[in-house]
Each structure stands twice: as C-alpha cells, then as structure tokens.
C-alpha cells in the first residue's frame, strides 16, 4: 500500500491537534513560565513517542493481520464517525466552532488566578498544564498513527507525518507568537474524519471476509461516496436549522402581534 495512505491522515490529524496544543502552551508560556512549559511539552511528546513505539510495534509483531484489520477498522470507523459528525454539525452551525483566540483568553484568565510563579526553579503549574495539554491532544494523534501505521504496514511514515505536522505548527507558532485561529480546523477535521471512515470501512470489511472486487480502487470510491454524502449532510443540516429558526421566529412574531 502507498506510504501516503498512512502519512496524509497522520499529518492532517496531527496538524489539527498541534494547533490546539499550541494554544495551551502559548497561554502557559506567556502567562507563567516558558522554561517549565517547554519541559512539559518535551515530556508530553516523549510519552506520546513511547506509546506509539510500544503499541505500534507490539501490534505489528504480535497481532495477525486479519484480526488487526477488523479491530482497527472498527475503531477507525467509530472514531472517524465522531470526527465527521462533529465537523458536519459545526459546519452547519448547530455546534460552536473551535475558537483558538477565545480558548486562549479563557485559559490565560484561569492561569493568572493560580498561585504565583516561583522566583527560582521550575513552575509546577506551567509544567503540568503544558504536559497535560500536549498529552491529551496528542493521544488522538497517537491513536491515528498506531492504527493507520500498523494496518497499512507504514508505522514509521505515519509517525514521520505526525512529527512533521507538529514541527511545522510549532515553527509557525514561534514566528507568529499567538494562537493560530485562522487554520481551518473544522475543514481539516472533516477531511480526516472521511479518511478514517473510508479506511475503517475498507479494513473492517476485509476483516469480516469481504473481498473488495475493485481492490485498492475501492478506497477512492469510498472517499468520493462518503465525502459527497458528508457535503450533502452539511447542506441538509443547514437547511433544516434555517427552516426551524424561521418557524420559531414566525411563531414568536405571531405571538407578539396578539
């Protein structure tokens, strides 16, 4: 299978999560102490690398490919549906979009209420918040890298894709020195979600015994089918919300006129 199969979703998912982690790290560094925040980031990244190395290698070495594809395909399907449905609801306006500037402001306010930064040595709050932020945002990426990488036999390219995305976002963060609120997070999440559902369907299907008649070309057909359905779902959800709002508005106006 083409290495891009594992690299692209790992890169995109990692970029989205890295943007969210960058907001947390920036808020901690600016409000409290950069040194402790960066130690927190380094420790978080080390734990994530360990998780990917241990689970990825163990899965590749010890789990038979048939069982692997069924289990991982099912997990990708479940996880991909979560990402896609949330992205559809956000695009339709039924769910609030991620606003990095707003999240940054709220976190900054909370951090200022914490105990003052010690004059000497490390700041435990900065370390803990940065560590937790990187680890929690990164766990989703680790999951995608391990599942995609091991199923496609491309663990290293997937990990490399995720690393490149993290480094790119970090570099942009250093240059602009503020939250990256202009990154189209929701669009990226929609694309990653569609890829997860596509490969989830393909691999789980193979796992239960489906021999896809069109081979790897099926992946492209599934992407087109799911992406088209997703776009139609956004359009329908928007129309549905608009109709309901208008009805409510009309009913409220009629009530006020009485």
């Amino acid at each position: 299978m083409d290495p891009f199969v594992a690299v692209v979703p790992a890169f995109l998912a990692s970029a989205v999560e890295a943007v969210e982690a960058l907001t947390i790290v920036l808020a901690v560094g600016v409000t409290r102490q950069w040194r402790s925040a960066l130690y927190g980031v380094a420790t978080g990244l080390a734990v994530l690398a360990l998780i990917i190395a241990v689970f990825g290698t163990a899965i590749v070495l010890f789990v038979p490919i048939g069982a692997l594809r069924l289990v991982i395909g099912s997990l990708l399907l479940i996880y991909g549906l979560q990402w896609t449905c949330k992205a559809i609801l956000r695009a339709a306006g039924a769910k609030a979009k991620h606003d990095e500037t707003q999240i940054y402001g709220a976190l900054e306010g909370r951090l200022r209420q914490e105990a003052p930064v010690p004059e000497h040595g490390l700041d435990g709050v900065s370390f803990a918040v940065a560590f937790k932020g990187v680890l929690l945002e990164g766990l989703e990426v680790a999951f995608i890298v391990v599942t995609f990488g091991s199923s496609a036999g491309q663990l290293l390219p997937a990990a490399a894709g995720a690393l490149v995305a993290c480094l790119s976002v970090a570099l942009i963060g250093v240059v602009v020195h503020r939250p990256l609120s202009r990154v189209p997070e929701n669009g990226l999440k929609f694309v990653v979600g569609i890829m997860l559902i596509t490969f989830g369907t393909f691999w789980a299907g193979e796992g239960i015994g489906i021999d896809w008649p069109t081979g790897d070309l099926t992946i492209l057909m599934l992407v087109v089918a799911y992406a088209s359905a997703g776009l139609v779902a956004i359009w329908l959800s928007r129309a549905m919300l608009e109709t309901r709002r208008r009805r409510r508005g009309g009913a409220a106006a009629a009530f006020a006129a009485k």
């Binding site: 896609t84 609801l89 008649p213 799911y226 779902a233």
Partner: peptide, 29 residues
C-alpha cells in the same frame, strides 16, 4: 455476494451518520 455486503455496509454507515445528525439537530434549537 461480497459486493452487495460492501454496498450495504456503506449504506449502514451513512444511516448511522443520519441518526446522529437527526438526534443532534433535534436537540440543538
């Protein structure tokens, strides 16, 4: 036939999406 099951699987996944959106939109306004 595998091809029929494959198509039904995709339809099933899309029905899950539809169910989720229906439940979410019902409670959103």
């Amino acid at each position: 036939a595998a091809v029929v099951v494959g198509v039904l699987m995709v339809v099933g996944v899309l029905m899950v999406v539809a169910l989720n959106l229906f439940l979410a939109l019902r409670g959103s306004i």
